[in-house]
């Protein structure tokens, strides 16, 4: 790399300036991640030094039904996130791009659930699902008096109840895709119009493919948030009834509480691996490594 004049003279200052960021990176990212990987191969209770035991934590993890159920839940949640959730966000973005009356107000309000604490949001939903005074059953009872479902405590409803706490809240996707849509050159649309394409065809044939980078990003973001989903479960069902709504972060936190650190970190590694698999898979699926234009 060629250093410019200003750069060379100031090199000590430059490194001094970047030092704090590097320190933060080392202590809060690199070191923890290395620790997680290394100690996932050990038995460690926090009192005694960790003892190496190979892949035992992983085989334990894989032999337990709670982890397998978590994986199954994650698979379903990821499918729903990648299709319905992202689809809804993209749909709203397309509608916004038509600039209907009041779309800015809707956009503003749509952001609100995302600026609220995840803990508070989970608790709000706990009340929405409450059978005695909750919004949902209250509304359903207007049409079906005597309706009685305890959403968060009954199989199979609990799984869907947890899903509903995030399903429609896709504002981040909407904003990313909307920004992308706005940057599509108007000439492209005009050309398509002249060729006699309908609005739907334009959306499907031109806009969607051109937005595939932002849609791919959305899919990655929404699936990785499902892998890391904690509050939405911990503060509603705690993974119950039975293990119906368990996921990996809950397993991880329970293991930390039980001071089973090696096991906890094996769960953490599984989250990493799943995240990377998602990244690679979606990249390949959406051909995100190729240029759009």
């Amino acid at each position: 790399m060629k250093l410019d004049k200003l750069g060379r003279k100031n090199l000590p200052w430059v490194y001094l300036f970047i030092l704090p960021s590097v320190v933060v990176f080392l202590t809060f990212y690199l070191l923890p991640i290395v620790t997680v990987f290394v100690t996932s191969l050990t038995r460690w209770d926090g009192y005694n030094p960790p003892t190496f035991q190979g892949f035992r934590n992983y085989s334990l993890l894989l032999s337990r039904s709670v982890f397998l159920i978590s994986l199954r839940n994650l698979l379903w949640w990821s499918l729903i996130a990648g299709t319905l959730h992202v689809g809804f966000g993209v749909l709203v973005a397309f509608l916004f791009s038509r600039r209907p009356v009041g779309w800015k107000a809707v956009r503003t309000v749509y952001m609100i659930p995302n600026v609220i604490s995840g803990a508070a949001w989970a608790m709000i939903y706990r009340f929405i699902f409450n059978n005695d005074f909750g919004l949902l059953n209250g509304m359903i009872r207007v049409f079906a008096p005597g309706f009685n479902v305890k959403w968060l405590f009954q199989s199979p409803y609990a799984f869907w109840a947890v899903t509903l706490t995030w399903l429609f809240y896709a504002v981040i996707i909407t904003l990313i895709v909307h920004a992308d849509l706005m940057s599509i050159p108007a000439e492209l649309h005009e050309a398509a119009h002249i060729d006699g394409a309908t609005g739907l065809q334009i959306a499907w044939r031109i806009d969607l493919p051109l937005c595939r980078f932002s849609i791919g990003t959305s899919v990655i973001l929404s699936i990785t948030s499902r892998i890391a989903m904690y509050e939405a479960v911990a503060l509603t069902t705690r993974g119950g009834p039975g293990d119906d709504t368990m996921n990996i972060p809950i397993i991880l936190v329970n293991a930390i509480t039980d001071m089973n650190y090696g096991y906890a970190n094996a769960a953490a590694v599984s989250m990493f691996v799943l995240g990377i698999v998602t990244l690679v898979l979606v990249n390949w699926l959406f051909r995100m490594n190729r240029r759009v234009y």
């Binding site: 923890p32 991640i33 890391a228 972060p249």
Partner: peptide, 17 residues
Amino acid sequence: LTLLVPPHTKAQPIFSL
């Protein structure tokens, strides 16, 4: 790249730190 690290995965090392 740190964006891609789920915050929960670092729970134990950060707790110990």
